[in-house]
Amino acid sequence: MKIGVLALQGDFAEHIVMLRSLGVETVEVRLPEHLNGLDGLIIPGGESTTIGKLAAAYNLMEPLQTFGQRHAIWGTCAGAIFLSKDVSRDQPLLSLMDIKVERNAFGRQLDSFEADLDIPELKQATGTEAPYHAIFIRAPIIESVSGGARVLSTVPDGRIVAAQQGHLLATSFHPELTNDTRFHEYFLSLVD
């Protein structure tokens, strides 16, 4: 299995370390030709405006959209924003997932937080019971899901922080900043 990590900007190296610890071959994706031969792709955390502008500048938008029709893609934080179809402002989006996202929805950096989440699918898929300890950095929320997208997890006030649409996955938080590999394992289970 060969998984690409979009390496335009952000914490792509952290995702690569996580994937390698699971024995997965990884590729840094900066140009369209780097998508050839990949089985799945992770879009890391970072600044969504920066990632979007660089993707547009190097003609990655259409190849990424085509890739996502058939292959698993997971976006964490900025990556989730990039996968969405609406962020209520003008910036490049892949519009692959039927989710509407609000950027920096919890506030600024002083409001960044850690919390335990209950994610039934994750427990079931990995056969584990422990709650998932999630790290949110100036995090977005998924305001609403529609079409084929469904909610995977919420914070206690009901705001959506993880969603899935077939082989596409979006999380507001950063599994790559933890030592818990379960979310990466869950993503790999979506890869054909």
């Binding site: 390496a7 335009l8 900007q9 952000g10 914490d11 792509f12 190296a13 952290e14 955390g45 970072g46 600044e47 920066t50 934080c77 900025a78 950096q109 002083l110 409001d111 960044s112 937080f113 850690e114 919390a115 335990d116 989440l117 790290i135 949110f136 950095i137 100036r138 914070v155 206690p156 950063h174 900043l177």
Partner: peptide, 22 residues
């Protein structure tokens, strides 16, 4: 759910989001 703010992980985490950037 206990939400912890200002931890070293979230402080360091924002810097990790800036990587590969200007």
């Amino acid at each position: 759910m206990e939400q912890q703010t200002g931890t070293f992980a979230v402080k360091k985490g924002l810097a990790q989001m800036l990587k590969g950037g200007v």
